[in-house]
């Protein structure tokens, strides 16, 4: 236990407070928080759906929860069920084997059920396109409100994309 406390003490607080001028975690996060307060009250619940991704997007989504971004402090959190979600963050070209599952997840999400297609594959099928096995873009399967490009998008690009979607509401 003592070792743990020592390590925590030595690590200190990571949260980036004094960011360089633009595109920073704090700025983006605070802006998101303001929009979330306007639209949802206090928080934005995200359900992620991997509909066929290579797992690259998921790794960057995980990064949003590390100490540097700590996206929960802005009221954004990932939930386990679509029934608790305000927003679906969907990755991948939609594999045909995932088409029904994605549709089912969408149907299970309460309004306003915003949808973001994340990554180049989610945007237009990316390297995989449309084929016998892939439906391509997320928008080919469910209605999409915003697209965040990148292969994969960085955590900051993700925050930026979420903010842009919220601002437009």
């Amino acid at each position: 236990m003592f070792d743990v406390l020592v390590k925590i003490f030595k690590t200190g607080c990571l949260t980036e407070k004094v960011p360089p001028p633009d595109q920073t975690v704090m700025e983006l996060g605070s802006a998101c928080q303001k929009e979330i307060a306007r639209i949802f009250g206090k928080s934005l619940a995200i359900r992620m759906v991997d509909a066929g991704s290579c797992n690259g997007c998921e790794l960057e989504m995980h990064a949003l929860n590390n100490g540097f971004y700590d996206i929960e402090r802005f009221g954004i959190h990932f939930v386990a069920s679509p029934r608790h979600a305000d927003l679906l963050l969907v990755t991948g070209p939609v594999a045909r084997h995932m088409q029904a599952a994605l549709k089912g997840t969408y149907d299970a999400t309460p309004n306003p059920k915003l949808v973001i297609a994340m990554g180049d594959c989610g945007a237009d099928g990316g390297e995989f396109g449309v084929s016998y096995a892939s439906c391509g873009a997320v928008a080919n399967v469910i209605p999409v409100d915003a697209v965040i490009r990148g292969c994969p998008p960085t955590p900051l690009q993700l925050m930026q994309g979420i903010l842009e979607l919220l601002r437009g509401r």
Partner: peptide
């Protein structure tokens, strides 16, 4: 569930295109 036809997608690509695809077999 995430079968997206990688092997079939590779057919006809040049080696650079193959390398890009291979980089997305498992991110």
């Amino acid at each position: 569930y995430v079968h997206k036809g990688i092997e079939k997608c590779a057919e006809g690509r040049d080696v650079r295109g193959l390398a890009r695809l291979a980089g997305r077999v498992s991110g």
